[in-house]
Amino acid sequence: MMNQLRTKILSPQLFRAVAGVLIFLSFWYLLTEVLKLPRFKLIPDPVSVIKEWVSFDPMSGRSLFTKEYYIDIAYSVGRTMAAFTFATVLGVTLGLLMGWNRILYDFTFPLVEILRPMPPLSWIPLAVLILPGVEFAVVYVTFIAAFFATVLNTLLGVFSIDRNYFLAARCLGSKPKDIFFNVVVPGSLPFIFTGLQISMGIAWMSLVAGEIISGQRGLGYAIYEGYFLYQFPQVISYMFTLGILGYISSAAIRAVGRRLMAWEARRRGA
């Protein structure tokens, strides 16, 4: 255990990752504090961002040591998770059925392809008009693009399955439902999980847009507020908070995927 930890800490991967972040921070510092380029006049340097982030008495009222910060995170995480869960359940189901059933595919594919490119933000007016309350509208906007990304990736996943698996399953005496659960579902899992990482990213992006325009509370809303109140260190610390949350949620999806797709993990491990 200790040895594992030690090799991990001393590994070149970790060293390079840390070095990458440090190089990025020094460029940022260079632009804002040393060179002081004209367009960067109002941009806070990394030190003041970190100071604000860990301050006990932040100017913006939002830092690691305030309740506000965690309420914002809770709102955003809650909205994203709700939207992502709906998008995954509905998107994977629809994608699998579309890939499996030619008639359903014919009915739905053109419609999906028209609705899919519509930017999430363009749904805001309709979402606000139709859905009761702002909260549902924000979740809807977060949901919609993630949903279509999941549908498409799942569909491609079904199409990626080698035809011989279907033939073999039929030879072996499968009924249609057996083929669905033993070939269609597992065969498309690798594409589904790639798609879920993409849809999770899309959900976070759409969330912030939705929160800025129609929301109350949440990280996106707080960033917008910070912009109007000239609290730029807080804006940037919240951007990084979003980045970290996005990173964690993608890693969680990968971990679930590895558990569900033991055969893929073992092949790569071998």
């Binding site: 011989n164 073999a168 030879c171 597992p186 065969g187």
Partner: peptide, 14 residues
């Protein structure tokens, strides 16, 4: 009537 396929069709997920 059982078929064994040219490129193999064992289910990789089983």
């Amino acid at each position: 009537r059982m078929v064994v396929f040219q490129n193999g069709a064992l289910f990789p997920w089983k």
